[in-house]
């Protein structure tokens, strides 16, 4: 299983999205995003904003990073702490 996390405003758009997906060959963050397009078009649009970063197991990665079973994939909008 792959754990999915959506932070900040992305969490509002991700309401109803399952918190985990099955691992599969060739899975990347881009593929996960594509898989959300049909059922969650507004979330897909938000995730396609250039400022959105992704992390895999708490490390910032690119959209083509392979995802392996047991990973934690998080979608991060621009941060606003401090």
């Amino acid at each position: 299983m792959i754990k999915l996390l959506f932070f900040g405003r992305l969490g509002d758009f991700a309401e109803g999205v399952s918190g985990s997906i099955e691992a599969a060959e060739g899975l990347t963050p881009a593929v996960v995003r594509e898989g959300l397009a049909a059922d969650y078009p507004s979330l897909f649009a938000e995730l396609s904003q250039p400022q959105v970063l992704i992390s895999l197991n708490q490390m910032i990665v690119g959209w083509d990073q392979p995802i392996f079973d047991g990973a934690e994939l998080a979608f991060l909008p621009p941060v606003t702490g401090g």
Binding site: F7, G8, R9, L76, P77, V79, T80, G81, G82
Partner: peptide, 9 residues
């Protein structure tokens, strides 16, 4: 911190 740390208000 303002631009890198994962906090959201």
């Amino acid at each position: 911190l303002k631009t890198k740390a994962t906090f959201w208000k």
